[in-house]
Design a protein around this nucleic acid. Structure first.
Length: 452
DNA sequence: TCTGGGGTCCTAGGACCC
DNA sequence: TCTGGGGTCCTAGGACCC
């Protein structure tokens, strides 16, 4: 906890709905629901007019339709539009400080102490952030934001919520407990419905009541980590820093179907489409993943995951798909699946892989990438130049064999994944580079000698 | 009321190694 | 032959957040 109110939490009010109302004047003053419109859709954002009728985020859209009057607008999200306005707002935050932690499209923390030039008195901070909120409105065509400024992330976030919408709360240092104690335990980060219910059985609903519970009791009820967390947060002890960049730890795609699907062929097509999306994002981040996970939800909402960790990290959609197919084959789909999803995790970078290779260089364990059929493809006759297929074609250069990792019109990158080549190493060639030869599947069991 | 889609973190048990 | 404890990795599930 800091001595001055130097952490800002900014939150855009009913963001998706507000953008829609801004862009379509006929929606202004009317209830607007943005979210899934289908039979199994849920509400992403309800405008304040819709909230007056009881519509809420995460509510089934069918329920929102029951509550809201005729004339309510139900809209699919337009993410590109939201992103555009979000970028304008994040730009204004970066004008204030280089240390901005974006939590989502509509939410961020800012370390106002980082530039060392702001007046961090309560009045100074209030003037600064009031000015920011005005700037946001004029730069975005009238979007409103709420802000909290405090000595910690926790209190800043709580502050931004206290006077929504279009609110600004500066929590004076020294008065954190005063603000916190009367509030519901639900305002604490990490206290959701399950924890709140559990606490209620001990007669605890407010933060002040939570303070009465001993650390050993909390740990025995909620476990080591969560127990200590609750004990600290109830006392406003929060020294988490504002962190600029967080690297993704997993990438996934999932879909809830309008009607449960029992047909394996259709499920396989859905799986392949989702792997394509996941693979594209993996490639954009130049990441390699070791673990593939599928997620399945049955008609009765029971949900299960199945995962497999590969020997080598992969960036190949073909490897991800083959692994996901193996996992899906283990699942009973006879009654139909409500949801199917795929994800990848356990990322590693090239440098690490290089080190790992150096260590194991002498072992030369022959490994065929799992799930890949090494048979060569028929040559592509549509083009004079060879056409390379990501995740399918095998190419050779003087270092050994590799799978095509990315192919453009002029360039092809090859990721070497043989027993004697460092997994994850990518080299780029011209598509007509004579060093490359297509077709032959690598002889993984008799690798050509490579000098490291 | 009948429950999205994208993530993060934690726990717990079993395998395996030293 | 029986018994141990710690550490790490993998898998599965669950709570939580926006």
């Amino acid at each position: 906890m800091r001595a001055r109110p130097s952490i800002l939490h900014l939150d855009l009010d009913a963001f998706f709905a507000a953008v829609e109302q801004r862009d379509k004047p006929s929606l202004q003053g009317r209830p607007v629901i943005v979210g899934g419109i289908g039979v199994r859709g849920v509400v992403s954002t309800a405008s304040y007019e819709a909230r007056a009728f009881g519509a809420r985020s995460a509510m089934p859209t069918a329920e929102a339709r029951r509550r809201c009057p005729p004339g309510t607008a139900y809209l699919h999200p337009r993410f590109p539009a939201y992103k555009k306005s979000s970028e304008v707002v994040m730009g204004l935050l970066h004008d204030l400080s280089p240390v901005v932690e974006q939590v989502s499209v509509d939410e961020a923390y800012v370390d106002l102490a980082a530039p060392g030039t702001h007046d961090l008195s309560v009045d100074g901070v209030r003037r600064l952030v009031a000015g920011l909120i005005d700037e946001i409105a004029s730069a975005t065509g009238g979007l409103t934001a709420s802000a909290g400024v405090a000595s910690s992330k926790m209190l800043a976030k709580i502050g931004s919520d206290l006077e929504k919408p279009h609110g600004l709360v500066v929590v004076e240092p020294g008065r954190e407990l005063e603000v916190l104690e009367p509030l519901s335990v639900r305002v604490l980060g990490g206290v959701g419905p399950a924890t709140a219910d559990r606490l209620k059985t001990f007669g605890v609903t407010t933060v002040a009541e939570l303070q009465q519970m001993t650390l050993p009791d909390l740990v025995s009820i909620f476990g080591e980590s969560h127990g200590h967390g609750l004990h600290r947060l109830a006392r406003a002890q929060d020294d988490r820093e504002v962190v600029v960049e967080r690297e993704a730890k997993s990438i996934s795609a999932e879909e809830t179907f309008d009607v449960d699907i029992p047909d394996r062929a259709r499920l396989d097509a859905e799986l392949a489409a989702m792997v394509t999306r996941v693979g594209a994002r993996l490639a954009r981040q130049a990441a390699f993943a070791r673990t593939v996970t599928i997620k399945v939800r049955h008609h009765d909402f029971t949900t299960l995951t199945r995962s497999e960790t590969l020997v080598h990290p992969t960036g190949e959609p073909g490897v991800v798909l083959a692994t996901a197919r193996r996992l899906l084959a283990q699942v009973d789909v006879a009654d139909g699946l409500r949801l199917l999803g795929v994800g990848v995790s356990g990322f590693s970078g090239h440098a690490q892989e290089q080190l790992a290779f150096d260590d194991e260089a002498d072992e030369a364990t022959p490994i065929l990438p799992e799930g890949i059929d090494p048979a060569p493809r028929a040559p592509d006759t549509r083009s004079v130049r060879p056409t390379w297929r990501t995740g399918q074609d095998v190419v050779h250069d003087d270092h050994g064999a590799g799978w095509v990792w990315g192919a453009g019109r002029d360039r092809v990158s090859v990721r070497f994944e043989g027993p004697r080549t460092p997994p994850g190493v990518v080299r780029t060639f011209g598509t007509d580079d004579s060093a490359l030869s297509p077709g032959e599947p690598p002889d993984w069991r008799a690798p050509s000698d490579v000098s490291a």
